[in-house]
Amino acid sequence: MDVSTAVAQRISTRAFKPDALSEADVREWLTAAQRAPSGGNVQPWRVIVVSGDAKDAVIAKAAEVLKDSPAGQPTDRAIYPKDLWEPHEARRRRVGEMMYEALEIPRSDRAAKLAWFANNYRFFGAPAAVFIVIDERMGHGQWGHTGMYMQTLALLAEERGWGTCMQECWGILRPMLKEHFGLGETEMVWCAMAVGVPDPDHKVNSLRAERADLDEIAELKGF
C-alpha cells in the first residue's frame, strides 16, 4: 500500500471485529512508528497498550468513574477550546450529525445518542487500545510532534489492514488514568487510540467526515 492510499482510506473506525492482535504484531507496529518525525529527536511520546484483561480493567474503571461523574473529572486541558468559533464549531457539529445519520439515530433521540457515545469508553469493541502519554512539561512543539507520531501509527495500521480511532474523549478521565497506570508525577495521558480489524459491515464505518475545500485552508504565494 502506498502512502496516498493509506491517507485516502483512513477513517475513524468505530466498529471492530473481535480478532485479537498478537503481541508480536503490535511490537512490530510500534517499532515501525518510531520513525515518526521528532523535532530535535526529542521523541516526547510514550505509549501504554492494553488488550485482554488489561483493557477490560480500564473499561471497568472508566464505567465506575462515569457512573458517579458523567461529565468526567476536572481537567485544565479541555478537548476543545471554550466557545469554539466558526467555521470550526460548524465542522464539529456536522461530523456528529453525519455519524448519527449513518447510525440511523434521530436527532431528537438523546438517550440513543448517549448510549452510542458510551461506546467510546469501551474502545468501540476494538481488541486493543493505545494510550498516548506525554510529560506535562513539554511545550507546544512536542505536542505537535506527538500528534505526528499518532498519525504515523494510524497510517501504518492501514498498511496492516487495521483501523484506528483517535479518542481524545479519554482526556476527561486523566486523574483516574494517571493513578491506574501509575504515571510519573509530571506525566499525563493525552488521549487513546482504539486499534483492530475494522468491521466493514457496520453502518458507522460508512462515515467519511467532510473536509474543507483547499481554498478555505491554503494560500499559495509566489507560484
Rank of each mutant, 00 (worst) to 15 (best):
K61R: 14
P70C: 05
L66R: 08
L114W: 00
R94C: 04
A71L: 12
K113Q: 03
D76M: 06
A111N: 05
L103D: 01
L66C: 09
I105W: 00
D76Y: 02
L103T: 03
P74I: 03
G72L: 09
E86L: 12
S108W: 02
K82Y: 12
T75G: 07
D83P: 05
R94E: 15
R94A: 15
H88N: 11
I105M: 00
A63F: 08
L103C: 05
A102F: 06
I79P: 06
Y100H: 11
P81T: 05
G72C: 10
E97K: 07
E97Y: 05
A71I: 02
P74H: 02
L66M: 13
Y100C: 07
R92Y: 11
D68Q: 10
R92T: 09
T75L: 10
R94M: 11
W85M: 10
R110C: 07
V65Q: 06
W85D: 14
Y100P: 08
D76A: 12
K61S: 15
Y80W: 14
P87I: 03
Y80H: 12
R93S: 11
K113D: 00
Q73G: 10
I105R: 00
L103W: 05
M99S: 07
I79V: 14
E104W: 00
Q73R: 04
R77N: 13
A90Q: 13
A71M: 11
A102C: 09
E86N: 10
R94H: 13
W85S: 13
R92W: 08
E89H: 07
R91P: 10
V95A: 01
G96N: 13
S108K: 03
R77Y: 13
E86G: 10
A111E: 14
L114F: 01
Y80E: 09
P106M: 08
K61D: 14
A102P: 09
R93D: 12
R107Q: 13
A63H: 14
E86V: 06
A60G: 10
G96F: 09
L103Q: 02
R77E: 14
D109V: 03
P81R: 03
P87W: 03
Y100A: 05
L114H: 02
E101N: 01
P81I: 07
P74N: 04
P74Y: 03
Q73E: 15
K61L: 14
E101I: 00
A90I: 04
H88Q: 12
R107P: 02
R77K: 13
A63W: 04
A90E: 13
R77I: 14
A62L: 13
T75I: 11
T75W: 09
K113S: 00
D68F: 02
P106E: 08
R107L: 11
